[in-house]
């Protein structure tokens, strides 16, 4: 029987997130491609989830009663791989297979290639529905396992998301928790210029979800929000975390260019200095 999280305190979680940030930049620089911005905005929550909350078994990644984590914004795969390394599912050398032929770290997270990954993502808008299926199955099994889904804010433009938002409330799915990474940037530019999102928390609340807004880079707030979501059992819970795309690397922060681009050598060295 696996335990929840890794028994780490806030300072230890913050150290782990910093190590992840370094590996995210290394992976993307190493292959000269990938998505650093959304990985860096999400990594504090990913650290909170794996370090503080998720009950998984690193010796048996397919253990049926594990909590499920569904990374719907599957392009932020370096973030997932870096935390799976910290959690013990991937070795450091596995990380350097990112985007390489035959590698376990495919361009977008893939359950068929990577131990510890619960969902094959890559096409936005699908992860919430998958999480609903996992949560419904847990209820049928009378299990206390929980489904956690991370969505991007640009991803909310997909219609399927709102199909799932309705279904989760209709079925009163209390063992489903969603995190929206509200970093304000999507592929082409700022979300505001592509499709205005207005108040995301208000939207989820209007559909009947319990909603909490946090600073997604404040580890104490991250941990508190995870604990709060766990307490919401009569329906789905949504954490809207306000984040900075590219957080931790000065020239990537809030810069649409680093949604899907790798740093050059000079930029890489600067990032390593900043994250030391």
């Amino acid at each position: 029987m696996a335990e929840r999280g890794m028994g780490l305190d806030i300072a230890e979680l913050e150290m782990m997130a910093k190590r992840c940030r370094r590996n995210i930049v290394r992976m993307v620089y190493g292959i000269g491609a990938g998505h650093p911005g959304g990985s860096l905005s999400a990594i504090d929550m990913l650290t909170g989830l794996y370090g503080h909350r998720l009950r998984v078994d690193t010796n048996d990644s397919t253990w049926g009663n594990r909590d499920r984590f569904i990374m719907s914004k599957g392009h932020a795969s370096p973030g997932v791989y870096s935390i799976l390394h910290e959690r013990g599912f991937l070795t450091e050398s596995d990380l350097w297979t990112y985007r390489k032929l035959g590698g376990s770290c495919q361009g977008h997270v893939d359950m068929k290639w990577c131990p510890g990954v619960d969902f094959s993502a890559g096409s936005l808008g699908m992860g919430l529905s998958f999480g609903i299926g996992c949560a419904l199955a847990a209820t049928l099994d009378d299990s206390d396992r929980t489904a956690w889904v991370m969505l991007g804010d640009g991803e909310l433009q997909e219609g399927q998301i709102w199909e799932g938002v309705m279904a989760a409330v209709h079925h009163e799915i209390g063992n489903l928790n969603v995190i929206v990474d509200r970093n304000g940037i999507q592929n082409d530019d700022f979300c505001e210029s592509q499709m205005r999102m207005f108040d995301v928390a208000e939207k989820f609340a209007a559909f009947g979800w319990a909603v909490m807004e946090i600073d997604g880079h404040d580890m104490q707030q991250v941990v508190n929000a995870i604990d709060w979501a766990d307490q919401v059992i009569d329906g789905p819970a949504c954490i809207v975390m306000h984040t900075i795309k590219g957080k931790g690397v000065s020239y990537m922060e809030n810069n649409p260019k680093f949604h899907g681009a790798a740093p050059n050598e000079e930029q890489f060295n600067l990032a390593m200095e900043e994250l030391s």
Partner: peptide
Amino acid sequence: LGIAEQNMMLVAAGMSTSGY
């Protein structure tokens, strides 16, 4: 799942990976 086929496909997938 209502008149929402895209959602239905992935809900089914999630249930399948949980043993159904």
